[in-house]
Design a protein around this nucleic acid. Structure first.
Length: 488
RNA sequence: GGCGGCGUAGCCAAGUGGUAAGGCGACGGCCUGCAAAGCCGUGAAUCCGGGGUUCGAAUCCCCGCGCCGCCUCCA
């Protein structure tokens, strides 16, 4: 009876049945980016994983206010601005815009709200004042710090205890802090730095503060879902919990979800390691759905190793998928009659797909399993295709039903295989041809010449033309519906 | 050192108590003028190793081994 959605909650370290606080409403907050540099595959993974969660929740009938924030003021932004002689605002604007464009290209739906830190300075100041009033924060030389030892639950998300952390401490020593683990709620501006006026003097908010303030504003005191990368568990999310719960006295988050990180040759992809692949580069080389497929064929909590070979495999798998749907779309009614043997199997496979696809997602968003069920269905489509050249009325209807179901489930929820197969094929041909510097017109001409040669039984010439095309990266296959080609 | 995760066929990867999905690749066959694609078949005595619980374990527990992440900004 798997009609309950179970998700792995980092707070309890186990899968739990998802019960929102006020159904059918589900509040969801995901940590976005700090806008100081271009986005890479790791950012794309978080965006896509939570996009699928958002789409799935809506499919289940929930109303989902979804918030994804932008950190648009921060040391790294200021540093970059100073280095490049531009304003911090310009830097932030640029990378926020690029991120929005690139995630949109990836088929990531826009969240309900995309708040920016600097647009919520009053809310943050108010939150700091609440924390000061409660005695869990203190002012020190123009800065405000959160006193971690005043919050009894500190460490509950990351499974750490204060004493242990102090023991191994690699934390920055500051004479302004009472405890080395205390973190800044408000930072004083140094000369030349951007600042906002506050009761403690000119300065800017600490990083962790914005998520507490903005989630409070847009989602209320208790969030149903809070997401982000695994690397945000400590200290970021731990600190958010401390700030929020100390201020409101209410549980901050019911379910914390964290996606695994991308690795390259087994090593974490990170800007500091210089081993990252930018989203921009990936989008220039692969169809967005190839990137989504690559990301979703592994469970969201596992590490995912990026290699060009794996990307090529994802591309090939997606081309095969769309190729099958493309021909399924060409199935037309040719005679009276019901479902014959292959069609009956396809019909059963369709029912199985409907059930298993959703069951997979209900089990902690198991997209890898869901993708597997999609390929199972496609395999049955391929078995059906040879008999479908002369399809019966019912078979033609079945073909349409399969296409509609794939679009409705995989297309709407995973964002994969939802495009019109004909458009996908044509766009991909154009895109890849351009990428390889081939003229599609020339390909069509060669194909026509080859068909002519084949009709004339001049197979030597036909094969030579096919070889020429292959040398250009154009793979030709002959089908009952005529030749079909893709650029690899 | 502390906390967390992972280890399943050549590679990638599901499966978390009832007898090993799927993708890529390989081999044989069918189809094809020949190919490609597709289809059919072959491929894990077995899920890192060793104990234990159970009628039954890749799945639960314990002990090892190996890899990774976090403990500092990081999706």
């Amino acid at each position: 009876m798997p009609n309950a959605f179970r998700i792995y909650n980092t707070l309890t370290r186990r899968k739990e049945v998802f019960k929102p606080l006020r159904p059918p409403r589900v509040t969801m907050y995901v940590c976005g980016i700090t806008a100081y540099d271009e986005a890479h595959l790791g950012h794309a993974r978080a965006a896509v994983v939570f996009d699928v969660l958002y789409r799935f929740l809506r499919h289940l009938g929930y109303e989902v206010p979804y918030v994804r924030n932008y950190t648009d003021i921060d040391d790294k932004i200021i540093n970059r601005a100073q280095r490049e002689g531009r304003s911090w605002r310009e830097i932030a604007e640029q990378y926020i815009r690029e991120y929005q464009e690139e995630t949109a290209a990836l088929g990531v739906l826009s969240p309900t709200h995309e708040p920016r830190a600097t647009e919520h300075i009053p809310e943050m100041i108010a939150l700091v004042e609440r924390l000061l009033a409660r005695g869990v924060a203190y002012v020190s030389d123009g800065e405000v710090y959160f006193a971690v030892d005043k919050f009894p639950g500190y460490g509950k998300l990351s499974g750490r205890r204060l004493e242990e952390m102090l023991a191994g401490a690699r934390v920055e020593v500051s004479e302004k802090k009472r405890n080395p683990l205390d973190f800044a709620l408000w930072k004083a501006a140094k000369p030349g730095e951007p600042y906002w006026e506050s009761p403690w003097g000119p300065g800017r908010p600490g990083w962790h503060l914005e998520c507490s303030a903005m989630s409070l504003k847009y989602c209320g005191e208790t969030l149903d879902l809070h997401g982000g990368g695994l690397d945000l568990i400590f200290p970021h999310h731990e600190n958010e919990i401390a700030q929020s719960e100390a201020a409101t006295g209410k549980p901050f988050v019911r379910y914390f979800m964290h996606n695994g990180l991308i690795t390259v040759n087994g090593e974490k992809m990170a800007k500091s390691l210089g081993n990252y692949v930018s989203l921009k580069t990936l989008l220039s080389r692969y169809h967005p759905e190839v990137i989504r497929l690559f990301l979703l064929t592994k469970h969201y909590r596992s590490p995912l190793d990026y290699t060009e070979k794996a990307m090529a495999e994802a591309e090939k798998a997606l081309y095969g998928l769309y190729g099958s749907l493309y021909f399924l779309g060409k199935v037309e009614y040719a005679k009276e009659g019901g479902l014959r043997k292959a069609a009956k199997r396809l019909s059963e496979a369709l029912s199985r797909f409907r059930e298993r696809f959703l069951t997979a997602l209900l089990d902690d968003l198991n997209t890898a399993e869901a993708v597997g069920t999609l390929f199972n269905l496609v395999s049955e489509v391929n078995r059906f295709l040879p008999s479908a050249r002369q399809a019966t009325v019912e078979e033609a209807a079945l073909a349409r039903e399969v296409l509609a179901t794939v679009k409705e489930l995989s297309g709407e929820i995973l964002g994969i295989a939802g495009s019109d197969p004909g458009s996908f094929v044509e766009e991909e041909r154009r895109r890849k041809a351009a990428l390889r510097g081939i003229d599609p017109q020339e390909i069509e001409e060669r194909l026509a010449a080859r068909e002519e040669a084949r009709r004339a039984k001049d197979f030597t010439r036909a094969d030579a033309l096919r070889e020429e095309l292959l040398a250009q990266g154009v793979e030709v296959r002959d089908t009952p519906w005529g030749p079909f080609w893709m650029v690899l």
